[in-house]
Design a protein around this nucleic acid. Sequence first.
RNA 1: GGGGGAGUGUCCCGAGCGGCAAAGGGGGCGGACUGUAAAUCCGCUGGCUUCGCCUUCGUAGGUUCGAGUCCUACCUCCCCCA
Length: 413
Amino acid sequence: MSQFKSEFLAILSERGFIHQISDPEGLDAAAKAGAISGYIGFDATASSLHAGSLVQIMMLRWMQKTGHRPIALMGGGTTKIGDPSFKDESRKLLSVEQIAANLAGIRQVFGKFLSFGAGPTDARMVNNADWLDHLNYIDFLRDYGVHFTINRMLSFDSVKLRLEREQPLTFLEFNYMILQAYDFLELSRRQDCVLQMGGSDQWGNIVNGIELGRRCDQRQLFALTSPLLTTSSGAKMGKTAAGAVWLNADMLSPYDYWQYWRNAEDADVTRFLKLYTELSLAEIARLGALGGAEINEAKKVLATEATAMLHGRAAAEAAAETARRTFEDGQSAAGLPTLTLDLDGGTGLLAAMVAAGFATSNGEARRSIQGGAVRINDEPVADDKLVLTRALLADGAIKLSMGKKKHVLVKPA
RNA sequence: GGGGGAGUGUCCCGAGCGGCAAAGGGGGCGGACUGUAAAUCCGCUGGCUUCGCCUUCGUAGGUUCGAGUCCUACCUCCCCCA
């Protein structure tokens, strides 16, 4: 499996990024022979990417680090259609304004992982709206539609779920795979891009692009997919109870991001270190060998390294220090997320908990209090009618906690 | 076209002879145990101005003191026959 001669594939392989490659020998030879260009598409379905996309981003990063040119494709056009792959029902269509706003949010993150420019291995960012928005329907059908048979498209696993459930798959969505295939063709022509990467759920779509390249331009293109990542207990990467693990700092603080990785399951530590950090495999092997409570050290390294890559070393160290003070010293630490409330007029505890995101309704907050989950300045609270006022301030803030892991500092308005 | 079956707590799956805020799972949250892990055990898991009030069982009507449960129409899906 890892008999790759190119540094690019060898690294991806040994770090666990590879699920399938369309023509492993061919791609390996191409990557060995010289710099190649490869892309991954990101649709603008939310205003930030989340941890589930991190594997893709890391693949682009490794591509660049091993001397190739990564292309981040913004799905400004395809998002208007919506990818139906492996979804059991169609998603709501996003407005054009919404897509533009989401795209702006998503763009930010790439600069932290890739270095952009015009040089041979500088990353590029392109938007498929540039070519998809102005396609002429009839011309497009005549030029490219002839290369796709419905028979074949219906055979893809990605649409089977929908078809088997006899859920409607609209013609609009059905076109998504054609447009994604066309993207690949466009990028091969415009950017000399020969590789498309993505999650394993994208395999069918990518292969369609390879077919199109062969038929239109007699060009050899490649596909490389990463495994669909779940945690050891089966949960999807990047989702927690509180919501998605966003990459944008304004949607998830560096502290909370650090916490997400710190709370990884034991069984995931080695795998995650390989995928989400750039530590050497030897170092990862050492960390992964730690047993019992010592593995917490490995989790801290994972959290700090992963956070440093996204938010910078300083933010990562600060998060680590805040966590250390909070969890290991049991003190309130200044780096905890803060919440500003009116303490002069007083704010009810229930309302404060909802504002802190500890509960979604007063009732839920009340039940948590009755269940003994809530503490103020580390003292358990039993009274759900309590009102937060300045009298509770300690060191300029009130530390409001729920459970062992959720802490917020309430400060006066 | 004909016949039969199904849509349940806006996370999911799923019970429900007319008295139902609705069994049971899963998931999630909290507690205990630990190592900010896993497993296990326990509690919680519609909303509110909470001894009470309000909104929930595909949609809209109807019967009834009272409907998730019965009736009518409609929507969607599954199966059999043509």
